[in-house]
Each structure stands twice: as structure tokens, then as C-alpha cells.
Amino acid sequence: MTGNIPQVAATVFLGSILTLDRMAFGQFCLSRPFFAASLLGWVLGCPSEGVFIGIIYELLFLRSIPAGSFIPLHPLHGSLIAVLLLASGSAGNTGWSAVPPALFFSLPAVWVDRSFEVFWRRSNERSLLKATALVRMGNVRFARGVHVGSIFKASLFSAGALLLSGIVLTALSRFTTGQFPSAAAYLSVAGLAPFFIGLAGVMPGRKFGFGRIGFISGLLLGALAGSGILF
């Protein structure tokens, strides 16, 4: 763990900054895993693998949307932890072969991420009461400050959650791959599994009419491109 302190620090710092974008401070799409994992991958020296991890997480959680007051699973922490595991070699391998185990071991971070958000939202509700009391006393400037503070509190909570996930999952992945050295190799198919689920998830519902013809056409075109005939 001690050898990875700069990498963990970079992950926690980046995650806490990007959380600001996610918690209604701009929402410029900077907290999406495709951008976040690509950026962290570039910072930690594994840009291509970072982009790939971003793609997998982006697809897997594309339909995980905050409808109404429902708090969905958010892939920011998971994607960052996956890049951290990959870059630090905690998943037992390096380079492309480390992608599947990094994805596998990073998934619990997504649930930790949601717990952090639930915690923050409760805190935000208390902030509303606090601001109301301040306005009643005529202290509007402080009431406005409560809102700014609430946003930065989200960043702080996020940093805590990322630190926890980073330490626990790095240790877990090292212990597991150390105990069963061949486990990472078995995960080759699992590395791509979330991709299929993500793609299936973004397909329109039961009646996608025109979409079926479009899907099959796209599939054929993609197969031609993938086999090198088209490009």
C-alpha cells in the first residue's frame, strides 16, 4: 500500500474534484466514467487501458439514471478505483491483462459511492433547515454560504469514500490474486462481460421496431469494421 500512496492520492484528489461536477455544480459531464477514467489513466501512465475501463463503466451504468428522487448507482468511484488497481498492479498483472481483474475488484466501489451520496443528501437536507433559520434571522449571506459549503462537503465526503474503497479494494485484490495466482487469468471473459450488459441495457425496450433493422445493419457494419474490411 505504501508504494502506491501517490497513486491513491491522485485518485482521491481527482475523484473529489470531479464529484463537484456531479453534485449539480455545472454538470459538464466531467464526472462520467468515460472522461474520469481516461483522465486518471493518463495521469497514472496507462491512457489506453483507462479509456477502455471508462468505456466499460460508461456502458454498464448508462441506464442508471436519477429518475425523481431515486438515487441510482453512480460509476465515478468504481471507474477511478479500477484505473487505480490497474496502474498500481494490485490486480496481479500489468497492462491489458490487468483490465479484467481491475474491473472485477472495483465494482464494490460503486455501492460505496451510493452510500456516500445517500449520506451527503441527508446532510444537504439539514443544510436547508440551517439556511432557513439563517434567513429568518436576516443573515442571507451566511445562508448562501451554507449552499456553497454543502457542495464542498460533497467533495470531502467523496474523498473519504474513495480513500476507503481504494485502501480496502487494493488490499483485497492483492490478497486474492496472491492466494490464487491464476484467478486473474480466468477473468478474461469477465473483463468484457459488463460490455455486453451495458449494450443490452441501452437498447430500446420491447418494441424497438425500426431499431431492430438499424441494430442488425449496425452489427454488420461493425463486424466489417472490426475485421478490417471497412477501415
Binding site: L192, F195, F196, L199, V202, M203, P204, F208, G209, F210, G211, R212, G214, F215, I216, S217, G218, L219, L220, L221, G222, A223, L224, A225, G226, S227
Partner: peptide
């Protein structure tokens, strides 16, 4: 949503061929 379907198919086609096990 109707545009998503062909683009998803395109991505799947590429990944299937590149994986070696379409």
C-alpha cells in the same frame, strides 16, 4: 432511442470481431 440501436450494433460488431470469439 431509435438512433441508439444501430450505433450499439456497430459497437458490438467491432468488439465481437476484435475479441477473437465472435
Amino acid at each position: 432511442q431509435e438512433v441508439i440501436a444501430p450505433v450499439s450494433g456497430f459497437l458490438l460488431g467491432i468488439v465481437a470481431m476484435r475479441s477473437g470469439t465472435p
